[in-house]
Design a protein around this nucleic acid. Structure first.
Lengths: 138, 138
DNA sequence: TCTTGAGCCTGTAGGTACTACAGGCCTTAC
DNA sequence: GTAAGGCCTGTAGTACCTACAGGCTCAAGA
């Protein structure tokens, strides 16, 4: 595909490569209306532009940061409705952060338990293992 | 249900309440053999005991920490296997530790990005939000 | 111009980890 | 004895993708 009036125009595969997104995932996002249905060529090929790429990157980044599709829909509505306030966005982010911090604390605990247990373990071929002791009595 | 020989005996609903697990999830875990099929009363009601509760709590905790069902099956073999050598157990533990460290790193990254973004955000009722900036510009 | 192969189209099915509902039997309390 | 609630089973739906299959289109080379 080529450019028109300085606007970069992409096929689905090109959008996928440009964003690092699986092509099937793009299709899925369209199906669930996370991405708008793009216009088509006469033969039915989809035509994407920069705005699609920007929106998709936003979605991918938010997914990477652990936001659910539902969360992201909310964020996108705020952003694109133009009526978002910083306070609303911050509130949502803080709630999400709280969940992440809780998971971090739990994982940290688990790491310590396993590391302590592994350190006590000689690795010799004996059937008594301190790791098992630790896990069963945790 | 009542107790027999000092062993606490639970129905499925009671097990659910005791562990904070959705009753349907217990059913699902039995279906996929994460939990053993418990014995039944004459009329067909399932009878659980403390060991079921312990195993279920372990599973729930591990799921919360982001382990897959597959991972947990491995962990449970560690805990309940008994017939493995210390070397085998240590190997498995080290692999799980690697998984935990990777998850910690991922979450830590998420936390930092989101905290940095949230810190920049005044929270005022203005439409320009640094968090959105963060999300739009990877 | 014809052909070939990559890329696009659609529908459908699978995977993981649950979650919800419907219709019926069992138990407990009044 | 009966009503409410809990348990039983099967089935279907959710979230978030991922992977085909079978067919059409487009660009490039012979």
């Amino acid at each position: 595909m080529t450019d028109h009036e300085g606007v970069t125009v992409l096929t689905r595969g090109q959008l996928a490569r440009a964003t690092g997104c699986n092509i099937e995932t793009i299709r899925y996002y369209e199906k669930i209306a996370m991405l708008p249905e793009p216009p088509r060529t006469a033969s039915g090929y989809r035509i994407y532009d920069d705005r699609h790429a920007i929106r998709l990157r936003f979605i991918l980044r938010a997914r990477e940061l652990g936001f659910s599709i539902h969360d992201i829909r909310g964020l996108l509505e705020l952003v694109e409705g133009g009526r978002q306030t910083c306070a609303e966005v911050k509130g949502r982010t803080e709630r999400h952060l709280a969940g992440i911090r809780a998971k971090l604390a739990d994982l940290e605990k688990m790491r310590q338990v396993l590391e302590t247990a592994a350190a006590k373990c000689s690795g010799d071929n004996v059937p008594e293992c301190p790791i098992i002791e630790t896990l069963t009595s945790a």
